[in-house]
Every structure is written in structure tokens, then in C-alpha cells.
Simulated scan of single mutants.
Amino acid sequence: MTFSEEHEEQQALFDEQPFKKRKKKYKGSKPQKKKRSKAKASIAEIIPIRDMTDDGAFQIQEDEGYMDMMQLQSKDIYSPSMDETEYDIMMMAKFFQSYAADIKIVSMNFPVDMQRQLDAVDRRIKKNTSPLYERFLLRKREELGFLEQHRTNREFYLFIYASSLKQLTEYRNNCQRYLGRVAPLLPLTEEKKIDLLYKLYNQNSKLEKRG
């Protein structure tokens, strides 16, 4: 009798049926992995720029209009008098109130261009005959090279948007007229615009040349 009870208990201990059911239940409740979204094939599918027009503007993807950019000439905000500062603030406020189209002001750091100064020092080094003066010129050249490698200028740009090229030209003229006395707008070369877009979408990169 005792042996029979032990035998029944052993059968209960080694009964695999409950374990199989639990395993099947666990297998069915396993969460499914989500499919990863397909990566874009090229950078052209990510940035909103489609192409550059003949006059240097940019056509935006999916027929969203056109864009252009100009550089805002910065000025010293500490030396002017209080009246001049209040006038600048008033003119800027008037511009933002009267200009209803989309705009964007972007500030970026660009490397300092010291090539003209370096060329001038190199010419003096070639013509120089004094060893003492040559040592001074070489030191000056090292300083200019250091500034070009390690210093940047903070520059400001105005991005304007329009639905057509004709409207873009009108907006560009309006901005130049309203901001002429406060922050004159400087035109940019096509190379500088491309450098600006490259720097905008690759902010950790360093430009080796300027447009």
C-alpha cells in the first residue's frame, strides 16, 4: 500500500502534461518584433532642397516653393548711443510687423579667412634681406596660420521663402529696403550658399574653404 502511494506520487511529479501546456501558452504570448523602418537611400531624400535655379535660389522638394539666403551685416551694439539703439530696435520691430511671409534668421560659425594676409606676408618674406626682420615675418605668419585654424567668426543669415521666383525677388527687395539702415543684406555667392547648407546639415564638420 505504501509502495503504491509512492508510485502514484512519482507519476504526479514526472507528469509533463502541465509543463507542456505552460510552455505552449508562454510561446504563444511572446511579443512580435516590430519591423524597422527603411532608411533613406541618399541625403537628397532627407534635406528639403531639390535643386538650385539659374539666379542662385533653391527649389524646395515636392513643389513647396523656393528659398534664398542673404548675409546680415552685423554691427557693434555697444558703441552706438541710446538713440541709435532705440532706432535700430524700432526699425527691426517695424520690419517684423510689416513682413508677413516666412523668414528665418540663422547664426553660424565659419572659419576665418586669412589667405590674403598670408599671401602678403609671403611676398614680404621673399623680398626681405634682413635676418632680424625675417624672424618677425615668420612669427607673424605663424600667428595668422593659428587664427585660420582655430578661430571662427559668428555670421548671421536671413532665409526667405516664396511660392514662385517672381515672388522671391519681390521679397528679397523688400527685405533689403526695410533692413538697409539697420542690418544691410549682403548677397552670397553660389559656393558660399552651398557651404552654408553643408554646414547647416553637418554642424560638427569644419569647412576647409569659404565661398
Rank of each mutant, 00 (worst) to 15 (best):
E5I: 10
E190N: 14
E148V: 05
Q11I: 02
K25E: 08
R177C: 02
L118P: 00
Y78L: 01
D119C: 00
A93N: 15
Y133V: 06
R172G: 08
K126Q: 12
K209F: 15
I43P: 04
R50F: 13
A101Y: 10
T2M: 11
T129I: 07
F156T: 02
M82C: 10
E143I: 00
I194D: 04
K21P: 05
D63S: 13
D102N: 14
R141A: 00
L138T: 05
K209G: 15
M70G: 02
I194K: 04
A93K: 15
S79I: 12
K126W: 04
H150W: 03
G145T: 07
D63A: 15
K192V: 12
G145S: 09
E5K: 05
R210K: 14
I194E: 05
K30E: 06
L200R: 00
G28E: 14
L197P: 00
V121G: 00
D51A: 11
L72K: 02
R50V: 09
K25W: 09
Y171E: 10
E45D: 14
K127F: 07
I43S: 03
I43D: 02
Y87A: 05
L138W: 01
I49C: 09
S164C: 12
F136R: 07
T189Q: 12
E8Y: 11
N204R: 15
A183W: 05
F3I: 06
E142F: 04
K166C: 02
A183T: 02
L179K: 01
Y157S: 01
Q73F: 01
I46Y: 02
M108I: 07
T189H: 07
S37G: 05
E5D: 08
K193E: 01
I77H: 03
S4M: 09
D122P: 01
K27S: 12
S98H: 08
S205I: 04
I125D: 00
F3W: 11
K20S: 10
Y133F: 12
T152A: 11
I43H: 12
K104E: 09
D76E: 01
F159S: 03
K140V: 10
T85N: 13
Q11R: 09
M67S: 07
K127C: 14
K21A: 13
I43C: 09
K127A: 15
N109F: 03
S74Q: 07
S4H: 05
Y26D: 08
D68L: 06
A120H: 02
R123F: 05
C175H: 03
Q115V: 06
